[in-house]
Design a protein around this nucleic acid. Sequence first.
DNA 1: ATTGAAATCAGTGATCC
DNA 2: GGATCACTGATTTCAAT
Lengths: 156, 156
Amino acid sequence: MSRQHFDTLDFKILEMLSNNARKPFLEIARETNVSGAAIHQRIQKLTSSGIIRGFETIIDPPSVGYETCAYIGFILNDPTKFDEVVERLKAIPEVVDCHFTTGSYDVFAKIFAHNNAHLLEVIHKKLRLGIGRTETLISFKEVFKRPIPILHENME
Amino acid sequence: MSRQHFDTLDFKILEMLSNNARKPFLEIARETNVSGAAIHQRIQKLTSSGIIRGFETIIDPPSVGYETCAYIGFILNDPTKFDEVVERLKAIPEVVDCHFTTGSYDVFAKIFAHNNAHLLEVIHKKLRLGIGRTETLISFKEVFKRPIPILHENME
DNA sequence: ATTGAAATCAGTGATCC
DNA sequence: GGATCACTGATTTCAAT
């Protein structure tokens, strides 16, 4: 489904649900002056069409044992290595985000680790073997993190 | 609250809620053999203590008008500029993530934009004025994205 | 998209380990 | 302190329109 199939109701639903996945459907219904069943059907459609990817509980990483956050850039010496790098990254559960990029790096990933020692161990033992070069950016403070803004103008 | 206050029930709740923020409390209760009220109380405590940061609906960025995703690294020429950069980044709703980092960059941010032209406009007009140098990594494919793993061993 | 109805759920307070 | 039970009001979900 592409974005031109949006209407104002879909937009309002996404806007309300974006930062509160547990907002009751009936509450959305009251604020939009439609029935609860209509909201229910819309959300089902938004989910089955892939616009809503899922409902996630945001958990504080340090509280569950992840004191270190880092980004790793890969500079590959061989274009055929892309898939190999991705496979390795997928196999590491602490890798939460992975992109193919243009610019300084070919592949770019975000990773959590228990501490700096654990991070370095993962990089040395699992990521830096015959695929080229890596560069690591260690975060010493997550200044902020928020969802993408849902803007009406983007959808007309 | 620090992590040593966790017990197995908290862990199971976080594990179940992590990838499904709308999972009914009573369903969690049945799967853990405790009452719904106990789950309710636990989730309140996890939320008020900051371990659960919130419940977010994950929305497909291209579906809502964000075709371009990029990372921007800032190399500052003056340490007092940290706060200025953060203020500028906060003022741009499309910036979803911002870190202080060690390594190639001082500040590192993730941004969504309508398209490449829009991205470059934001970088030129709002980010690159007298704060040092920036480098941009444009993602041409998000290979995967997932939540941090909730592992029992991390919490004992 | 709505109605209406059944099943299920969230949240509260008294009570009991 | 933390879980349970019992209960009320709210919510989800479905079929029919």
